[in-house]
């Protein structure tokens, strides 16, 4: 019970800090909007994929992209916690390291879900209509993808000492995951070597699941995507709790 109260406390802190930093929310939706309305519309003027204008085709990919970047870069806040010593306050409390980790994960997932919600509100401007069932499936996909990716960010953050170092390392992870995920292109007609890498990227399954539920006609069966995302996030949470147990206070 007290672990649950503690988990709530850690989550509450993340939410309060996030809600007080309007610039963080604004900047986090700015890039996806550029992608959708400038890159998507620009390319969509001449290109269509599978009968869909490119900006429509791109929409699920951009939701996955936002999830990926917000979740992964959230790991920087554990580095900040070390820097400003708030982490020490948490580590000398009776809470277990697992709770400390999960509290941070919930914080990162909340940021991501708020951002995805804003992107969902943009759907009508692209002429995409989303029903209630679809919304449930979108949040389900984002939940598991974000759970796994936030964990990766925090695992990296747990061993880094400076935010700058974190940024460098995470870029090395973020861009391959993004470009290989098929967020920007369809994955059904790829050269075999590229397809192999694409299928190794967990984000691919998030993109494809979102594409399937929002637009229909993904390349991977929905059940398979969900199974992969669940297994992926479970593995990352497990590694994350281990990483936090080994983490030093400073």
């Amino acid at each position: 019970m007290s672990e649950l109260l503690g988990l709530y406390a850690l989550w509450l802190r993340e939410v309060k800090v996030y809600s007080r930093e309007r610039s963080r929310i604004a900047s986090s939706v700015f890039t996806p909007i550029l992608w959708l309305f400038v890159f998507g519309k620009g390319l969509g003027a001449t290109i269509s994929i599978g009968g869909l204008a490119y900006d429509i085709f791109l929409y699920p990919g951009i939701i996955a992209m936002s999830t990926l970047f917000t979740s992964l870069f959230f790991g920087v806040y554990i580095v900040w916690d070390k820097r400003v010593d708030f982490l020490k306050e948490v580590l000398v409390s009776p809470l277990s390291r697992t709770t400390v980790f999960l509290g941070k994960v919930l914080g990162g997932m909340t940021d991501t879900i708020i951002q995805v919600t804003i992107l969902l509100l943009l759907a009508p401007f692209l002429g995409i209509s989303i029903g209630p069932r679809t919304i449930v499936l979108i949040y389900g996909t984002v939940f598991f993808l974000s759970l796994g990716i936030v964990s990766i960010g925090l695992i990296i953050g747990s061993v880094m000492e400076s935010p700058e170092g974190f940024g460098l390392v995470v870029s090395f992870v973020a861009y391959p995951l993004f470009f290989l995920s098929g967020a920007l292109f369809p994955i059904w007609n790829l050269p075999p070597w590229l397809r192999a890498f694409v299928m190794l990227d967990p984000v691919t399954y998030g993109v494809d699941a979102l594409r399937t539920v929002i637009l229909g006609g993904g390349a991977i069966p929905l059940e398979v995507s969900f199974a992969v995302l669940t297994a992926f996030s479970a593995a990352m949470v497990y590694i994350g709790t281990k990483a936090f147990e080994r983490m030093k206070a400073y």
């Binding site: 509450l12 800090v17 930093e21 010593d85 009776p94």
Partner: peptide, 23 residues
Amino acid sequence: QDPSSDDMLTGRENLHLHGLMYG
């Protein structure tokens, strides 16, 4: 020795979180 409260939160909020963490 070094400050370890969250400066984005109020004093009361910092205490509130601490109380929750200690159950």
